[in-house]
Write a protein that binds this DNA or RNA. Sequence first.
DNA 1: CGAGAGGGTGTAAGCGCTTGCAGTATGCTG
DNA 2: CAGCATACTGCAAGCGCTTACACCCTCTCG
Lengths: 339, 339
Amino acid sequence: MVSIDEVARAAGVSTATVSRALSGRGHVSAGAKAKVEEAAKSLGYVVSASASSLASGRTRNIGVLVPFLDRWFFSTVLSGIASALMRRGYDITLYSLTADRGERHDVFDTFLRRQRVDGVIAISLELGQEETERLVELDLPVIAIGGPNPLLTTLTVDDVAVARLATEHLLALGHRRIAHIGASPEFDIDFHIPTQRRQGFELALADAGIEVSPSLFEPADFTIEGGFRAAKQLLGKPGSRPTAIFAASDEMAIGALLAARELGYRVPEDLSVIGIDGHELGEFFRLTTVDQFPLGQGERAADAILEALESTDAETPTHRPGELPFELIVRGSTARLPQ
Amino acid sequence: MVSIDEVARAAGVSTATVSRALSGRGHVSAGAKAKVEEAAKSLGYVVSASASSLASGRTRNIGVLVPFLDRWFFSTVLSGIASALMRRGYDITLYSLTADRGERHDVFDTFLRRQRVDGVIAISLELGQEETERLVELDLPVIAIGGPNPLLTTLTVDDVAVARLATEHLLALGHRRIAHIGASPEFDIDFHIPTQRRQGFELALADAGIEVSPSLFEPADFTIEGGFRAAKQLLGKPGSRPTAIFAASDEMAIGALLAARELGYRVPEDLSVIGIDGHELGEFFRLTTVDQFPLGQGERAADAILEALESTDAETPTHRPGELPFELIVRGSTARLPQ
DNA sequence: CGAGAGGGTGTAAGCGCTTGCAGTATGCTG
DNA sequence: CAGCATACTGCAAGCGCTTACACCCTCTCG
């Protein structure tokens, strides 16, 4: 591996100048800079990450905490983070957090403390009290996406408003018997978003003067299959069936769509279905949804962490822990209730 | 941050002993080891990654190259890698490779050369000649999953055999007019797996004495939507329609399932469908498939890279660039052809 | 024209570890 | 009991960078 000394020799300057020329810190004359860049390029020199980190205390590396790698929403957010950080020359180190207490413990007590990262992004993670404290103790910028956490800078969408928007869309189409698939209690132990969506749903109904009927709620686990099963329950119950279903995620909404189809209901003629997320399959299934732009969430989180890193600590953060955008996307799965 | 000196002082030994006790290299008496561990624990000491890397040349970090983060197959393999590596105390640094030439170039020319990783895993990546060379130049262990590459140690499933197995399953059920959804030529420019699957398909037909009809082939892009469209083509063509469809991925097979449904064909009574992968939705759709255990692929790759790292270079690698396992999973989407 | 302000550069002191080497203690062999 | 291998430990020299400090020069301004 070629080292900074060789570059210095080739360029006819000191290593200090090489370092300054390549990092852009401190003053270097245009001539020297050109010579250094030329030498570095022809030698194929790349600054050693560990040496640079050790000497400067900066790693150019961001840690990303993810609960599930293999679920669409998370991998999409991650994808947004990765591309934004890469553009800025940052590496990303991935910490996949399982439910396993021991493994989680290792992540917070060991992995994150190796001084390998300059900052941390936590994706939709419901962190325990102790875990949050560990994170704060790191004394690094931390950006959380999703799970609102009073101790952390958080980028969140207003889930109550999102759910309200979805519900109001159905109400505006004339629906009155609206079912909801969402938050199963045990899932909610460490994941509050579903509850907020349920709240938004109930608030919208209340505002419309509609009583919330427990029989129009069905818990599920945020998968297509879960949504399918929940919708079958909902549509199979005795008594008048719902004319619309609001699912707390697109995957569950797709499950509901498939369930309706299988039971012989036409969507949207016999049943309207709306979801939340902006899932890639939404278009294919012509699913009406409230898009929360997960790719964009990742990019924003990346920008936020870089900003936190680059602003001197004295400086006040430019913008508040952001509210993330969302938008109703009307496609073919919702329609006006036939008179 | 607490440093090794503080631990040494607290334990009443030299920093050398602390280092040895904590890393397990060299000899340390049981007593000293206990004292060091006790001191380290009570001080909350964790070895600094950059200092350790710089001094030892080992980073305890593996780079993972992924083409798409947000596709089920890749994120599942990644998930397998992540959990296996984490168990062994390794960090993982993610390099997401887009199609963008410039970005790819950066990854190979800069990111990977920062000496931040001890080894590299490349997931199903079709690398250019130059990219492969760059990878080899790094002089690090590299494990590739999928795309067979003569210059790299590769873990691959025998895609010809996989496709043959799927096709033979249909043949054994009496099907003779079997369509294939797979390799679209432009997709194949840098991705050979689809072609191999097509070969396996054609070989199986040839062995059964069945002529391969071009009209029974339809290219698609490996998504549900692509499979859906391709199946519609196949099922809508004049002339006798196929009695079975073999899709080169489960996602396309699911699309085919949905297309068949929409056209009013019953699966498996009117049409058998088989895919490849072992997709998480397979169970839900009762899809017959050839599972290639992507989670396991990731774990194997992780094991392979660690083995390469831990074996001295002199030592011959314990096992050959592996053949990965696969297995026919018969569910409800395939059935005997009615007489 | 002198003082002061920077720009441009090099020297050298670390950053926080790992590890070769050397020294001491201990155990085993013949 | 000499002779030698081996366990354990510490000293100190780096690993490859960054950056404080010092120094020299060139401008600008009063």
